[in-house]
């Protein structure tokens, strides 16, 4: 096993909430109608005219302490290369324990009966390509790479910018970071 730790870094200053990342993911990964692996959250703070906005492109956090993997009775949910959390379709019973276990509600039941979610596009990453959502994003909000490689773009961003994760109190140790 490699000592890579794949992470995504989302620069909320740049994201315009256009949803190209959602649509690119859907076509890259054949996500069925009515489902998505990534999504946009737009938060508005304040009262007119003193407003602030934060737009986030969200997906599975590929948690380092993934509760979904712990909850899975069959080993279908597992940790793959670089810490990427995947579901092996052929092992999944669709018991949905992992869905209940995910604090981020990042998973869903695929109409074909297995549980599905963001894969960090590992099939692309393995051949040296970026995840589909990262590749399409017109504002270059999304960054992907190995946080354990200090020279990687993501490692540099995490060193130099203020980053947060969603609900750190879950203890799941997410690997999708939001720059503010």
């Amino acid at each position: 096993m490699s000592s890579k730790r794949y992470v995504m870094v989302v620069d909320t200053r740049l994201c315009v909430g256009c949803k190209a990342c959602v649509l690119a993911c859907k076509s890259e990964n054949n996500v069925p109608d009515g489902y998505c692996r990534d999504w946009i959250v737009e938060d508005i703070f304040g009262i007119f005219p003193n407003l602030r906005a934060e737009i986030r492109s969200e997906r599975c956090n590929h948690c380092s302490g993934a509760p979904c993997v712990d909850a899975c009775p069959t080993g279908a949910s597992h940790v793959s290369e670089g810490g990427v959390v995947l579901v092996s379709h052929h092992k999944c019973t669709g018991c949905k324990a992992c869905i209940a276990a995910c604090p981020y509600d990042a998973r869903y039941v695929h109409p074909d009966g297995y549980v599905d979610k963001c894969t960090f596009c590992l099939h692309r990453v393995q051949r040296g390509e970026l995840p589909a959502c990262v590749g399409i994003c017109p504002t270059r909000t999304l960054h992907f790479g190995d946080a354990n490689d200090p020279s990687s773009e993501v490692a540099q961003l995490l060193r130099t910018r203020r980053a947060k994760v969603n609900h750190p109190e879950t203890g799941a140790e997410p690997n999708v970071f939001f720059l503010t």
Binding site: Y35, C36, V41, F45, E54, E58, I99, D105, V109
Partner: peptide, 25 residues
């Protein structure tokens, strides 16, 4: 500035997950 969002819009609408989870019946 308020800490809590006054408006939240999300595009996520996964069946049985959104708007609230109901996977087990």
């Amino acid at each position: 500035m308020h800490r809590l969002p006054v408006e939240t819009v999300t595009t996520r609408l996964n069946h049985a997950i959104d708007p609230s989870l109901h996977i087990w019946g």
